Amino acid sequence: MFREKTRFVLEIEEQPEALRRVVKYYRAEGVEVLGRAASLCRCKDGGRIVFTGMGTSLYAATLVYSLLADSGAALPIVIEAGELLHHCSKGIEPEDVVVAISQSGESFETVKIAEKLRGHKLLAITNILESPLAQRTSLSLPILAGTEESISSKSYTNKLAVLLLLANEIFGKKRNMVIEGLLRCAESMEEFLEGRRDEIREAAEFLREANFLYFISRGPSMAAAQQAALTWMEGVHMPTAAMPGASFRHGPYELLRPGFHAICYAPDSQAGFLVEKMTEEMAGFGARVVIFSGRRVKSDNGLFVIELEPGDDYLLPLTAAIPQELLLAQMAKDRGWTAGVFERGSKVTRHQ
Rank of each mutant, 00 (worst) to 15 (best):
349 T>Y: 06
261 H>M: 05
14 E>C: 04
141 L>E: 05
311 G>D: 06
286 G>P: 03
32 E>M: 12
332 A>R: 05
314 Y>T: 02
153 S>C: 13
314 Y>V: 05
340 G>D: 03
325 E>V: 12
115 E>Q: 14
107 S>M: 04
269 S>A: 08
261 H>K: 08
181 G>I: 03
37 A>P: 10
7 R>A: 14
26 Y>Q: 06
232 W>E: 02
142 P>I: 13
197 R>Y: 09
261 H>A: 07
233 M>Q: 15
91 G>H: 07
308 L>V: 12
323 P>Q: 09
130 E>G: 07
255 L>T: 14
98 V>N: 00
220 P>S: 06
194 E>S: 14
330 Q>M: 15
17 E>H: 15
313 D>V: 03
292 F>N: 04
58 L>T: 05
105 G>F: 10
30 G>Y: 09
109 E>V: 01
238 M>G: 02
140 S>D: 06
187 E>I: 10
25 Y>V: 12
39 S>G: 11
174 K>A: 12
89 S>C: 05
222 M>G: 08
15 Q>Y: 01
342 F>I: 07
191 E>G: 15
40 L>Y: 03
273 F>M: 04
315 L>N: 00
137 T>L: 09
255 L>A: 15
306 I>M: 09
198 D>I: 11
219 G>F: 04
276 E>M: 11
242 A>C: 13
200 I>L: 08
12 I>T: 06
143 I>S: 06
13 E>M: 13
110 T>L: 04
164 L>N: 00
102 S>G: 03
312 D>P: 01
